[in-house]
Design a protein around this nucleic acid. Structure first.
Length: 654
DNA sequence: ATAGGGTTAG
């Protein structure tokens, strides 16, 4: 077909080829572009500088920097457009350092840069947050008199913002001789990216006052900003009022829900998006997978996975890593691993996601093995990798292995332990019952221990019923984070388990006086592609009556099997009978009962919980798994619990 | 040629 088209236009072969290549660029049709390239070579037109430049451009747009570079280096001569095309190829593919290097090479050849090449190199600097180079470019731009160009100006604003220099960006913005909607939006986005939402809103108001119409890019920026502030309702209102919504606008709103714990709303919005005929892209899928992961919504996650394959996004490394994460967070480490093995490209995040998957599911040995493999295959672990490896060791009681990893992280990969790593070590030692070692470890820390470290110790004290250490750790957390409810709950658990009623009452009052509220426990379960949420103590689900009846029936059977409700997990000072009732309304139990009613016998039940699963729910679920002959998987805020035949794979170590 | 949405942990 390509040949036919060319033959029909033999009168202007070069122009025709340019047209064809531009079409390929637009459609990102690499294979077709290569065909056209072959024809150009056949017609001995490949030394034509215009065609060669267009080829470089085409390969760049189709994502093949390698081919772009080949064409570029085979060209008999380069003009400024050739350089622009190859620099932009590297900048767009994320190889910003290479782009900057090429720009320097270009200047060495004596060619004078034009506006466009400055824009392209500035983009590379923004990507790298290479402020010094950016400033150098800025002065070159002034020297050549390009500073009054509105595109160059907007790009400079963007570069300074992405380097974290919002004040420089703003000064430049104020001095721009001409400002269009893009300039305003770049400055608003600059504030948003640097967490200055007040300034961003103020500038947005000013923009409207000066009569500049915000477009859908401006509004999507604001939707994202509202969402990042946690104001999803404001974001939604703005989103609803947008006249034009493209895939980015929808994704920004989907992200807002997914990243604020409202995964259900993300998935609902996706349905609406499809109805309105907007096509999701790779980024949309990443966000939706995050929503599924946060809900452990495996069925919908699998559906998305097949949509991803259908639309050809499965080779995107970020999509792949997010899929690994989604399967892991649904408790399916084997599926995650198979996917991981088949990924066409893996980066440090992909490896880390898989290691984290093993860690979350209590498979410490597998995590360590993968960590070894990763290094053998030449991927350098980063600090997050180490957090995951250490937490895998902590979850699986691999104390010596964890110590060894910690001791060698700087030596092996130059990763300096941060607060999080120290907290992991305290967790590792504390969980294993070495509370004294953990305290000693904190004493020897070269940095001031932060609240995460003390929280780890407090958690360990809770697990091992150590009142004194628990109290000490609690006091340290309070000094750093007086408004956090978690330490109050942990210390209350310690007092309750130790039967220290007076101290329990006292801490409950202190908590009340401090105006600190415990986050209510909430569990989710997906049934028939629909996620159902259960909040502790609430009977708001339409089928609450049946759920409570089922729980009643189960508790009877459980007691026959030896279940004794652990009333120490009810912190309110009420009668024992009432405590037992309260235990029965814990969200995990409600979700389990619902799952039992709504799914066929024998099928596994998968539940997601926002906090840690409580000891009584853990014990109860073990017994239920045996009585009803079902596998029950509870993904809590920390790790998974896989119940089967009366046991949990965590071995009660969590 | 310029502005907006994305991956691992906690």
């Amino acid at each position: 077909m390509v040949e036919q088209m060319v033959q029909q236009t033999t009168k202007a072969p070069i122009g025709a080829y340019v047209c064809l290549l531009k079409g390929c660029s637009r459609r990102k049709a690499l294979a077709e572009g290569k065909q056209v390239h072959a024809l150009i070579v056949q017609s001995v037109l490949d030394s034509n500088i215009l065609l060669a430049n267009t080829l470089v451009h085409m390969y760049s747009k189709c994502g093949s920097v390698l081919d772009a570079h080949k064409v570029f280096s085979n060209m008999p001569q380069h003009n400024v457009y050739s350089w622009t095309a190859i620099i932009s190829a590297y900048a767009d593919s994320g190889q910003a350092e290479e782009a900057i290097k090429l720009f320097q090479q270009m200047q060495e050849t004596g060619l004078a840069p034009d506006k466009v090449v400055f824009v392209v190199v500035l983009k590379a600097c923004a990507r790298l947050a290479a402020l010094e180079q950016g400033k150098q470019l800025h002065s070159d731009i002034i020297r050549r008199g390009f500073q009054s160009d509105v595109i160059v100006g907007s790009t400079l604003v963007d570069m300074y913002s992405k380097c974290g220099c919002t004040e420089d960006a703003r000064e430049l913005f104020n001095n721009m001789s001409e400002r269009d909607v893009v300039s305003w939006t770049a400055m608003i986005a600059g504030y948003a990216q640097n967490g200055l939402s007040k300034e961003a809103f103020a500038l947005y108001e000013q923009m409207k006052q000066e009569g500049v119409q915000p477009n859908n890019v401006t509004l999507s920026t604001l939707v994202d900003m509202y969402a990042k502030c946690g104001c999803t309702e404001d974001a939604r209102e703005l989103f609803n009022n947008m006249s034009e919504r493209d895939v980015v606008s929808w994704s920004a709103m989907i992200a807002g829900y997914a990243q604020n714990g409202l995964g259900k709303d993300s998935l609902a919005l996706y349905e609406q998006m499809k109805q309105e005929g907007v096509q999701p892209d790779n980024v949309t899928f990443v966000l939706l997978l995050q929503a599924c992961a946060s809900l452990a919504a495996l069925e919908q996650g699998k559906q998305l996975h097949s949509d991803i394959i259908k639309r050809g996004f499965q080779s995107d490394v970020i999509v792949g890593s997010t899929l690994v994460d989604m399967y892991s967070k649904c408790g399916c480490t084997e599926d995650a691993r198979e996917l991981f093995n088949n990924m066409s490209e893996r980066n440090v995040v992909s490896w880390t996601a898989m290691i984290a998957g093993y860690a979350q599911n209590g498979l410490g040995k597998e995590a360590l093995a993968l960590f070894d493999q990763m290094q053998r295959e030449g991927t350098k672990p980063n600090e997050v990798t180490y957090i995951c490896v250490l937490s895998a060791c902590a979850q699986s009681r691999l104390v010596d292995e964890g110590r060894h990893v910690f001791d060698s992280m700087y030596k092996n990969h130059g990763v300096t332990p941060t607060m999080e790593h120290y907290a992991c070590m305290v967790d590792l030692l504390g969980r294993a019952g070495c509370l004294a070692d953990a305290e000693l470890f904190i004493d020897k820390m070269p940095i001031q221990p932060g609240s995460v470290v003390w929280m780890s110790l407090l958690g360990a004290a809770r697990n091992h019923g150590n009142v004194e250490i628990g109290r000490r750790a609690f006091d340290r957390v309070m000094k750093l984070e007086p408004k956090n409810a978690a330490p109050y709950v942990l210390l209350s658990n310690i007092y309750a388990a130790a039967g220290r009623k007076d101290e329990l009452a006292k801490i409950r009052n202190e908590m009340k006086d401090a105006g600190v509220k415990k986050m209510p426990g909430c569990s989710w379960i997906e049934v028939d592609n629909q996620v159902h949420a259960f909040v502790v103590g609430e009977a708001t689900h339409p089928q609450s009556k049946e759920i409570l009846a089922e729980l009643d029936r189960l508790v009877g059977l459980m007691k026959e099997a030896g279940y004794i409700p652990d009333l120490s997990f009810v912190l309110d000072d009420v009668e024992d009978k009432e405590k037992e009732n309260a235990l029965c309304r814990h969200s995990v139990k409600l979700a389990v009962a619902f799952g039992l009613i709504k799914t066929p016998p024998g099928t596994p039940i998968r539940i997601k919980k926002n906090l840690w699963v409580c000891g009584d729910c853990h014990n109860a679920t073990k017994i239920i798994s045996k009585i009803v002959g079902r596998e029950i998987i509870v993904m809590d805020a920390n790790r998974s619990h896989h119940f089967k035949d009366g046991f949990c794979f965590c071995g009660d170590y969590w």
